[in-house]
């Protein structure tokens, strides 16, 4: 497999000489380690608090006694959220939208990036420019809204899965990967009589699994997390993605002006469960995919 060379940013600097640390520097290192532990804890805290609330009883949350650990442990909130059929309908929608949008996005991005990586593609400079201009200047909210309306995409799945299809940043990452694809492999296949399609589907794609996996994940996370497109274009509650379900929970809770009332506390409980179930897939795969994301970002920073 053709792999991408990005620096290992988890590596630590090793000193070759045996210079002793000064007392001042040693003090700094202790303070530094302590500070980083605090930062890490603060980063994790909102997650821990969310999990704690998801398993806590309303009474303890209302009394302001839930922080790191669940109080009044119970699973009834889970049962009630999971018993809400609309939640599962919306959850399934998110899965469908994510799969379809990622598929469309990958098909367009991969083929476009491959074509753009070929120096003999006449008009290549213009096409790259065409894509890059959209990074600098985008149409804006209102014209986009009117376009989706004019296309008749409103309240259809197409408003969700089509408009995000080419992310220019991802396109450039893929292009720079294909730019470095060994020419000899493609030439050899062409000499053997393979067409450009054959070369692309049977030689290039199988050898580009790493970058394809990375880009697929980039897109999938983006589509999984998106809510605003749905908020803007969908009217039908049965079509909402789960992020919009969650947004409506939050909106319902905050529109109550009296924040001390019981309804809000129930919401806090339910919110946590819905949030937890929404982030769960991402948190579960995150440890395994993290390195792909990191290398993807670094690839993108390589000019060209």
């Amino acid at each position: 497999m053709v792999t991408t060379n990005t620096p290992d940013i988890t590596a630590v600097r090793t000193t070759t000489t045996t210079v002793r640390d000064t007392p001042g520097y040693r003090a700094f290192r202790i303070a530094n380690a302590f500070l980083l532990v605090v930062i890490t804890f603060l980063t994790l805290y909102p997650f821990l608090n969310m999990v704690a609330k998801a398993f806590s009883s309303q009474a303890y949350i209302a009394a302001g006694e839930v922080n790191l650990w669940p109080r009044g442990f119970n699973l009834t909130t889970f049962a009630s959220v999971m018993g809400d059929s609309i939640f599962w309908v919306n959850y399934r929608n998110t899965v469908v939208y994510t799969l379809l949008a990622t598929l469309i996005a990958m098909a367009l991005t991969t083929t476009f990036a491959y074509a753009l990586s070929k120096p003999y593609l006449k008009g290549r400079g213009v096409l790259v420019g065409l894509a890059m201009v959209t990074m600098l200047y985008a149409g804006g909210l209102i014209p986009n809204y009117l376009l989706i309306d004019a296309l008749g995409f409103k309240n259809t799945i197409w408003a969700i899965v089509v408009p995000g299809a080419i992310n220019v940043f991802n396109l450039l990452v893929m292009k720079s990967f294909f730019d470095n694809f060994p020419r000899e492999l493609e030439e050899a296949a062409e000499i053997d009589g393979m067409s450009q399609y054959g070369v692309f589907f049977r030689i290039v794609l199988p050898l580009s699994k790493a970058v394809i996996a990375t880009m697929t994940l980039f897109y999938a996370v983006q589509f999984w997390n998106s809510w605003f497109q749905a908020y803007l274009y969908l009217n039908d509650r049965d079509m909402y993605p789960v992020t919009l379900y969650l947004r409506n929970l939050l909106a319902a809770a905050t529109s109550t002006t009296d924040l001390g009332s019981d309804t809000v506390q129930i919401q806090a409980n339910v919110q946590s469960v819905a949030m937890l179930l929404t982030v769960l897939p991402i948190v579960c795969v995150y440890p395994f995919i993290q390195k792909y994301f990191v290398s993807g970002v670094m690839l993108g920073s390589v000019k060209g």
């Binding site: 909102p46 608090n49 969310m50 609330k53 949350i61 209302a62 009394a63 302001g64 996370v221 999984w224 997390n225 998106s226 809510w227 992020t243 919009l244 969650l246 947004r247 939050l250 809770a253 905050t254 924040l259 001390g260 809000v264 506390q265 806090a268 919110q271 946590s272 949030m275 929404t278 982030v279 991402i282 995150y286 994301f293």
Partner: peptide, 18 residues
């Protein structure tokens, strides 16, 4: 990697009166 909706939800919860 968190959706903005999740972040907003966390903000509401942490800054709630309780």
């Amino acid at each position: 990697f968190m959706s903005i909706v999740i972040v907003a939800g966390m903000v509401f919860q942490l800054t709630a009166i309780n």
